[in-house]
Write a protein that binds this DNA or RNA. Structure first.
Length: 806
RNA sequence: GCCUGGGUGGCGGAAUUGGUAGACGCGCAGGACUUAAAAUCCUGUUCCUUCACCGGAGUGCGGGUUCGAUUCCCGCCCUAGGCACCA
């Protein structure tokens, strides 16, 4: 007897070649017939390592989602590119001497080939590579637009400094006080830095209207942006006319304020102590604080609270008391950089105890007077005010707005909002990045490069070893540094820092549909058609980095009238992480798992489906190959169901099941529940093994599995005589009439416990159903134990009797 | 400390406007085919008790609401991720 067997290795190669030959995945961007669908996976860094299972999970499953959309009849655009500037290539270069441009281009070639092995429908024709001049030219252009509109500026400020990577980091790139690349403890370093006014977009970035994003991601961003409502309160210095303005979210505690703290890096500190006997000590403490790493400075716990008295006093505007001003390490340049300190804040409380500053309470649970002397820590709860002038006796939360208006009336306070979000420091003292297009001229000062002379090309022959003094390697390249001033033509020097790679990735989604344009970064009309990205897939670790920067840049371009859409990514999905033995896969841990052996053994469709079958897409999971053989068996059974000729036993039942399957698979793929879509397909295939399947149903079945197992589906589709690609066919629709069940099984409960089961017509009357249920002997047994006081009938679900014992 | 998720068989996981918990797959056990093996197919598989039926327990722990709770409420524990001296 002839056996039909599926051979994934040959078949997959065959279809990959056919797709390539037909240019199947090259999207016609100008097509008008179908609706557009822009699907995007966050572009990868072109690492020299081979693709691991995480990549497959990411790119393979995203591809299934895009193929599904294609079969919905949409013109799908799923481009691919590389985020190719950055430290790994540069560090590799320092170690080996191979130029980053060479390793990067070589790695890209290797990765492209590996993506093909997944069987993805990615469009490489519109590829974007951020380290190529035809791309970073426009990254520089973007910087100039920011600059011209006052959104890019230079500031001399202590910045986050990674001593290992020898570069500045943005706030977003410091994770728990450590460099998010290399894990070194971040220190502070005074540097002249380019920054983008991200903070001025805080409020706009809080608008998520129309976005289909995971709630969790929005929460994370909101948390990062950190909007708080509070008040600014002015404290007049006792000598001179100076005013220190404090920001507080607790103006209700104003009557308890017994001292004021100012951030050590606050520009007013010098004025406060200049020429006084406190100057020396303040400067000593300041430099001590400055030397602290971010972790030391910001870790909680009273021990490491340090500060010192400035010798100056201010007046508490409501109690009129003269209170001392301190510098303190726990006060950051947030809000106004000045805080009013009191016994109702734990940090202030600890600081006061350490430096013997007097404390006083004005809130207690019931309004009875309490004294901090009898307390170990601050009272931070709500309650009733006392010793608070006219506000005594009121609930503190109710009094809060009234106290603000009271202070507003007297002119020393006002309601304000604050954000934790800071500006985006983008200078990097590294070689492998896009040069910042600015020159410095002795005569004209800081001058932007003319747009017409972009790109400012990154010179190739540079000693990229770190200079050791915190300077960019480009500083040593005199051919690069020395240039002419675009304004006066005189001698000038180029900016030698390069841009944070997150600038490159903040706008790449705009470039894909316009990647062939040489005279502009993008075209407004083309983007009007293709933006926003309909489905964006990437890891949740980018919630407070790339996803904030991209929204910011997009919004700026919108405000400048250069594009027509407010938000770049309409729907966002995060893939979960694939771990090995519970740990993140990484080369250094040596726990990466290569897909190769599984592809060789079972085929790429099987690996892809197995990854999907592990669980919900956003959960990720711990890798184990234990169950992959089950998917492989399923692939074989699927093929046999299609390939074998078998008499169909129960046509009607098969059709009903098939239509239920269409509904289930459609909904599950749409909602990224690939695991249950596959289960449903398995159930159906098992049924079809038994009952056989007619040709029309086979066609539908093949269509349903196509997004999940593209090669298998193409092979089966041609096997049953279809001439076109399955991906050119239209997704099947289910017939509502066919999925309605005529009979239904009901559980019969007595006092909530299941005692039997009956099968009835779906529209059977309550009386009939109850009658039948009562007649079950095992139900009878429990009914006779007492009196039936209640009968429950939930159509299609359950029948219940409540029996009360006699 | 704060903000999110999540805890279900030996394992990955299904199922929640409250209604028969454990779909599907792995593994395991038994059987068929085979000289034998592989492959394939069939049957069983939450735990306890039982030959079997019946029965009891059961969705992290402790309470509560309900005829009925994996699902809702209160209080905990564990775990993953994010934020963290933000006044």
């Amino acid at each position: 007897m002839e056996e039909n067997r599926y051979s994934p290795q040959e078949t997959e190669k065959k279809w990959q070649e056919i797709w390539k030959k037909k240019d199947f995945h090259n999207t016609d961007l100008s097509e008008k017939k179908r609706k557009k669908f822009y699907g995007l996976v966050m572009f990868p860094y072109p690492s020299g390592d081979k693709l691991h299972l995480g990549h497959w999970y990411n790119f393979g499953i995203a591809d299934s989602a895009f193929r599904f959309q294609k079969m919905q009849g949409q013109n799908v655009f799923a481009p691919f590119g590389f985020d190719s500037f950055g430290l790994p290539a540069e560090n590799f270069a320092i170690k080996t001497g191979v130029h980053p441009a060479d390793t990067t281009e070589a790695n890209i070639k290797v990765m492209e080939r590996q993506i093909d092995e997944i069987g993805g429908m990615y469009d490489f024709d519109k590829e974007v590579v951020t380290s190529r001049p035809d791309y970073y030219k426009w990254t520089q252009w973007l910087f100039l637009q920011m600059y011209k509109n006052g959104l890019a500026y230079r500031k001399n400020e202590p910045a986050n400094w990674c001593p290992e990577c020898q570069t500045v980091l943005a706030n977003e790139q410091v994770q728990g006080g450590k460099c998010d690349r290399c894990g070194s403890e971040v220190t502070r370093k005074m540097l002249n830095q380019w920054a983008l006014k991200l903070s001025s977009y805080a409020e706009k970035l809080l608008d998520y209207e129309g976005l289909d994003w995971p709630e969790k991601t929005i929460k994370m961003q909101q948390n990062w942006i950190g909007k708080s409502h509070g008040a600014e309160i002015d404290f007049r210095l006792t000598d001179g006319d100076g005013i220190l303005t404090a920001y507080t979210t607790r103006p209700d505690t104003i009557y308890s304020v017994t001292f004021v703290c100012i951030a050590p890096e606050h520009p007013l500190v010098d004025d406060l102590v200049k020429g006084t006997k406190y100057e020396k000590e303040v400067n000593e403490v300041r430099s001590k604080i400055n030397k602290q790493t971010l972790i030391e400075r910001t870790s909680e716990g009273g021990e490491d609270k340090i500060g010192c008295f400035t010798g100056r006093y201010v007046v508490n505007p409501v109690t009129k008391e003269e209170i001392p001003v301190y510098i303190a390490n726990f006060v950051l340049m947030y809000g106004t950089g000045v805080v009013m300190a009191c016994a109702h804040d734990q940090r202030d409380f600890e600081f006061a105890k350490k430096y013997n500053i007097s404390l006083r309470f004005v809130i207690s649970e019931n309004g009875e007077k309490t004294d901090p002397k009898n307390f170990e820590g601050a009272y931070t709860g709500d309650g009733v005010l006392f010793d608070s002038g006219d506000f005594s006796g009121m609930n503190n939360r109710e009094a809060l707005p009234k106290m603000v208006s009271f202070m507003e009336g007297l002119g020393f306070g006002r309601a304000t909002v604050n954000y934790k979000l800071r500006d985006w420091l983008l200078s990097r003292q590294r070689y492998w990045g896009a040069p910042i297009p600015i020159v410095y001229c002795d005569k004209c000062g800081e001058v932007p490069v003319e747009e017409s002379s972009l790109p400012v090309e990154l010179p190739r022959n540079v000693d990229f070893k770190p200079t050791g003094d915190g300077m960019s390697p480009l500083a040593k390249c005199s051919d690069f540094v020395n240039t002419k001033c675009p304004k006066c033509g005189g001698p000038a020097k180029r900016e030698v820092d390069t841009m944070d790679t997150f600038v490159c990735s903040s706008w790449y989604y705009l470039r894909y549909p316009c990647s062939k344009m040489t005279d502009k970064p993008f075209d407004k009309d083309v983007l009007k058609k293709w933006m926003p990205v309909d489905l964006y897939i990437g890891g949740p670790e980018h919630a407070c980095m790339h996803l904030i920067y991209a929204r910011f840049v997009n919004r700026v371009l919108f405000d400048l009238g250069l594009i027509d859409h407010k938000e770049p990514f309409k729907k966002l999905i995060h893939q979960g992480m694939i771990t090995k033995d519970g740990a993140k896969m990484s080369k250094s841990k040596g726990n990466t798992v290569s897909p190769d052996e599984f592809v060789a053994k079972y085929g790429s469709d099987v690996l892809r489906m197995y990854l999907m079958f592990m669980g919900p897409y956003s959960d990720g999971g711990d890798w184990s190959d234990k169950g992959i053989v089950g998917i492989s068996r399923f692939q074989d059974r699927f093929f046999r169901v299609i390939a074998d000729e078998k008499e169909v036993v129960d046509m009607n039942e098969m059709h009903r099941s098939l239509h239920k399957l269409i509904k289930k698979v459609s909904e599950d793929i749409e909602s990224f529940h690939f695991n249950t879509a596959i289960s449903a397909l398995m159930e159906f295939v098992n049924l079809a093994m038994k009952n056989g399947l007619d040709r029309a149903s086979k066609k539908v079945l093949v269509q349903l599995i196509a997004p999940l197992a593209p090669h298998l589906a193409e092979e089966c589709f041609s096997l049953i005589g279809e001439e076109k690609s399955v991906f050119e066919s239209v997704w099947p629709k289910f017939d509502k009439k066919l999925i309605v069940e005529s009979k239904v099984k009901l559980g019969v409960q007595v006092n909530g416990k299941v005692r039997g089961e009956i099968e009835v017509d779906i529209d059977a009357s309550k009386e009939d159903v109850l009658e039948l249920a009562r007649s079950l002997s095992n139900v009878q047994k429990y009914l006779v134990l007492g009196e039936v006081v209640k009968e429950i009938f939930v159509p299609g679900k359950v029948i219940g009797f409540v029996v009360k014992e006699k």
